[in-house]
Design a binder for these strands. Structure first.
Lengths: 191, 191
DNA sequence: CGGCCTCTAACAAACGTTCGGTCGATGCCG
DNA sequence: CGGCATCGACCGAACGTTTGTTAGAGGCCG
């Protein structure tokens, strides 16, 4: 997969010839399948963002109360970052490698994602279930914390993706000071 | 500054000629001051890591109780990431651009930094002041969350560095479930 | 004059991309 | 069933440009 190479060497640090040889091909042959290296990056970005948006929407829809919805969102987000680690990592670090309108298109989707997340917090604040001094800051703190999972997670590690997701959900509940946090994290597991 | 360019375009995405023209020089002139592009990157890394290590040690030394020490550590970490945003950002994203032993040297310092942070949590757990289900995971969650500040912070934003640092300190206290969290964050401000 | 510092020019290597040719599989026709 | 055209997938070589780096000459300032 191209994403694995982009992850370990970066977009600009990965020659087209490396991408090709990874697929047991010659460099020129790649251009039968893709019009440019940039498009290859962009396609990966778009797929990742679409999966994130659809997955988040889906995870949230299954729950009704604010704490459960936020929990489900966090668990989905973390699990996606463990199961599609390379894609998620690249989507965070290589945005700057996207050119003009490609970058704009992705940033738009990222903003949409962040807004969906923020709405989950706002909802809990509105009902009084959450107590956060600064919704915007708390939201971005939660998101960067959860996205950071793609930085350090290892499938060979002590905890698997589901376990990390559960523990992160509890951490988030603490951050928004949901009083029923202690026993809830595991209880509201989606699947 | 070279770091600013590395930040916006990445190491491999920044030609030596761009670094030079940023200093109103020609490319060749740079090599009077630096032996190689790689060394330029490494020097920046080493300075940043040393400042982080020294700063953390210093911030922690001034406080005695576990919650105050953790708070001071978080505040220092966040403020450093707002005041040296480019350096901090590059030190997170471009580790992969470091070659062999350069990379090893930096990773060693990073591990040392993480261990110092973890010790702060362990101390609070030992005294019963903190209640965390998984120290290692909580530690890395806190660190990625706080380092993420370098991703989104803007000096022109609504909150300045000190304000962000204070709010992050409170979020962290919530994560380790220090019961006196509410009023403490601002109270323990260092400077 | 002498020591910093910067310039210009050039280098080989590596870059993304293009293109004509090749090869095996497939489909059609007699 | 055999012969031939067609097609998708890939190769290999080449392209013009850009890369990091080196070398030597020249200018400013003491």
């Amino acid at each position: 997969m191209a994403t694995a190479l982009f992850r370990s060497r970066g977009y600009h640090g990965t020659p087209v010839r490396a991408l090709a040889s990874n697929l047991k091909m010659e460099a020129g042959s790649l251009y039968y399948h893709f019009p440019s290296k940039q498009q290859l990056l962009f396609d990966g970005f778009e797929q990742t963002m679409d999966e994130l948006l659809a997955g988040l929407r889906d995870a949230v829809e299954r729950e009704s109360t604010a704490p459960r919805r936020l929990c489900a969102a966090v668990r989905f987000h973390v699990r996606y970052h463990t199961e599609h680690q390379s894609e998620a990592f690249v989507s965070h670090t290589e945005i700057r490698a996207l050119t003009g309108r490609n970058r704009a298109a992705i940033l738009e989707k990222r903003d949409e994602y962040e807004a969906m997340f923020r709405a989950l917090i706002d909802a809990g604040v509105a009902t009084g279930e959450f107590d956060v001094p600064d919704t915007g800051l708390t939201n971005i703190a939660i998101l960067t914390m959860c996205s950071g999972v793609a930085d350090w997670f290892s499938p060979k590690g002590r905890l698997d993706g589901a376990a990390v997701a559960d523990r992160y959900a509890e951490l988030v509940l603490r951050m928004v000071r949901y009083s029923g946090a202690a026993g809830r994290a595991r209880g509201t597991r989606a699947r």
